[in-house]
Every structure is written in C-alpha cells, then in structure tokens.
C-alpha cells in the first residue's frame, strides 16, 4: 500500500513537472526531470543485476551507449537514404528505433554476459569493464559515424500522430515509456524469476543444490538489464538529439552504480530516488561551483562509509524503523 502511494506521488510529480516548470518560468526543470526519468531507467536496469542478482557489472554504460548509437546510426542512414550494409534501411520512427535499440543492446549483453559470467568477484568487475572499454573504443574508431565527436540527430524520432518537435511532447513520450518500463520491472522483481535472482545473490550454491541452473538465470538477468539500459540510451539519444562515445565512458558506468547505491541497493524505488538525488545534486552543485565533483565525492564517500541502504534506508531509519 505504502509503495502504491509512493508510486502515485512520483508519477504525479513527473507528470506535472512541465506545468510547474512553465509556472516557475524555469525550463531547465523539465530538462532535468527528463534526464532523471531516463537515468532512473538505466539505473533500474543495473539494479536488476547489481541489487537483486548481486553481479557487480562495471560496464553498464556500454549498453546505454549502444542503444543511443542505434538511434543515431538508423537516423543517419535514414537521412542519407543508404541502407546499412546495403541491407537494412535507416529509420526515424520511434516505434522501430526503440525495439531495435533494445534488440542490439540485448545482443551485446548476451555475448558479454555469456563470457563474463564464467568468472566472479573482482575478475567479473574487471572483465565487464574491459568489454565496455572495447565497445567504447570501437565507437571512437567509427569515423563513418563521427568517431569521437559522435552523431548529431537533427530531429527526434517521429511517432505517428504526435508532434515530436515539441519538447513537452517528447517529455511525455519519455514518461510513458518509463512508466511502462517500471511496471514491467515491478512484475519481473516480484515474479519467481525475481525470487530466484535474489536467492542467487544470497547463496548461489544453495540455489544450485535446489536444482536451479543459476548460470542461465544470471545470463537472462544480464540480458534483460542490457536491454533496459539500451532502451534508456535510445531515449537519451532522442532527447539530446545527439550521441557520442562519451555516453559509454567507464566513469558513466561508475555514475550508474552510484545512482543505484545512493537510492538503495536492491529496492524498487531506489534507482529513481538515486538518479534524482544524483542529477539534482549535480545540477545545483554545478550551478554553484565548477568544482562540484569535490562536493559529490565527499557526499558519496559519506554515503558509502556511514549509511546503510542509501536514501530509502535513511528514510526508514528516520522513521524509527530498524531493519
């Protein structure tokens, strides 16, 4: 029940944000809010493997970047009217580019996951980082698609019946996709699949003894997480009308982990609150001083060393509840 109220409150805040931004005369608020929605999705997808499954993937920004690049590359081929490899035509239709982005980032996650999940512990952290770096350098080398400078997408993808040149329309499209994504995520984490995943985090050997093929479950989760990040990246490309290798730099993977931890590891609303906290902090600190990362670093250090369970855990404790 309490979770339902929190969900309704969050939805109301995000739905009313464009109006509020208009009333206050601060358009930046709408941009900030859209970024929060998109990063919340990416962080939630990471939370699925990191928080629920206990897999510390340090290369999650790679799938985010692949999703963004799918939108960018499809758009540039649509513009030039040259098919990709002479086979697939480009596209500027959101209903085509989003599934394509999920498909390709999911495929990347499938290959990387199948190889990485053979290792564990520190080696797993490093090998996911290594694969992400390889993808990063791959896109840097693609001079046909802008290399280091990335691709400028002149216009956001079209949706039949909507005027996607209007920023507020784009915002609401992002909101709808995000709501659908979180509704799906709610079902996943509360399904038997979600329970198995939590079981693996707690004790993988026991799950194996119960006759569960843990590798396969972990790989499914890894692929689903990659697809979620790809979806978020595709939305980001549409929102910024730009993609670049910067989106998949390893520090971005670090930032996604920070968001998950800030909000509360392995909790449903954690990634949303974490992304909001991180981006709002960045927004105001950056406004105040160019050395905002100093403040961010100190806060982050404090959160890791002295709090347990991120923002959600802190709220619980402030209310006097002990876990």
């Amino acid at each position: 029940m309490r979770k339902l109220i929190l969900a309704v409150v969050l939805l109301a805040i995000f739905a009313l944000m464009p109006l509020a931004a208009d009333l206050l005369g601060q358009n930046a608020l709408q941009t900030l809010s859209a970024r929060i929605l998109i990063y919340a999705m990416a962080a939630a997808s990471l939370n699925l493997i990191l928080g629920y499954g206990g897999m510390v993937s340090f290369g999650h920004a790679a799938y985010f970047g692949v999703g963004a690049y799918v939108v960018g590359i499809l758009y540039s081929h649509w513009m030039s009217e040259v098919p990709i490899f002479g086979l697939f035509p480009g596209s500027n239709q959101l209903l085509i580019t989003l599934p394509a982005a999920m498909l390709l980032s999911g495929f990347a996650a499938l290959v990387i996951g199948a190889l990485s999940l053979r290792t564990g512990g520190i080696q797993f952290i490093m090998i996911t980082l290594a694969f992400a770096q390889m993808i990063f350098f791959l896109f840097v080398s693609l001079t046909a698609y802008g290399g280091e400078d990335g691709i400028i997408i002149r216009r956001s993808n079209e949706v039949p019946g909507l005027n996607m040149r209007d920023k507020t329309t784009v915002y609401y499209v992002i909101l709808v996709v995000a709501v659908l994504y979180f509704a799906w995520m709610w079902r996943v984490v509360n399904s038997s699949f979600g329970q198995v995943l939590k079981g693996i985090r707690q004790n993988e050997r026991r799950m194996e003894a119960m006759g569960i093929a843990t590798f396969r479950y972990k790989l499914y989760a890894f692929v689903l997480a990659g697809m979620g990040a790809g979806l978020a990246g595709a939305l980001m490309a549409n929102f910024l009308r730009f993609t670049s290798p910067d989106m998949m730099h390893w520090t971005k993977s670090g930032e996604l982990i920070i968001m998950v931890i800030l909000g509360g590891l392995g909790t449903f609303f954690g990634p949303i609150l974490g992304a909001a906290a991180f981006l709002i902090l960045e927004f105001y600190l950056a406004d105040w001083t160019e050395h905002w990362q100093l403040g961010l670093g100190i806060i982050l250090l404090f959160v890791v060393l002295f709090t347990k369970g991120g923002i959600l855990g802190m709220i619980d404790r402030l209310r006097g509840g002990r876990q």
């Binding site: 990191l50 510390v56 982990i257 920070i258 990362q293 100093l294 961010l296 100190i298 890791v304």
Partner: peptide
C-alpha cells in the same frame, strides 16, 4: 567489493578536484 569501488571512486573525484583547486 561494491562499497570499495564506490568509496575509492569518490576518492578519485575528490583528489582530481583538489588538484584542480
């Protein structure tokens, strides 16, 4: 490992900005 990665990542941010300052 996760806490270690995060805390030392925070140290990177702090050191970089201190050096810039």
């Amino acid at each position: 490992h996760l806490d270690q990665v995060l805390a030392t990542f925070a140290l990177i941010l702090i050191f970089n900005q201190l050096i810039v300052l």
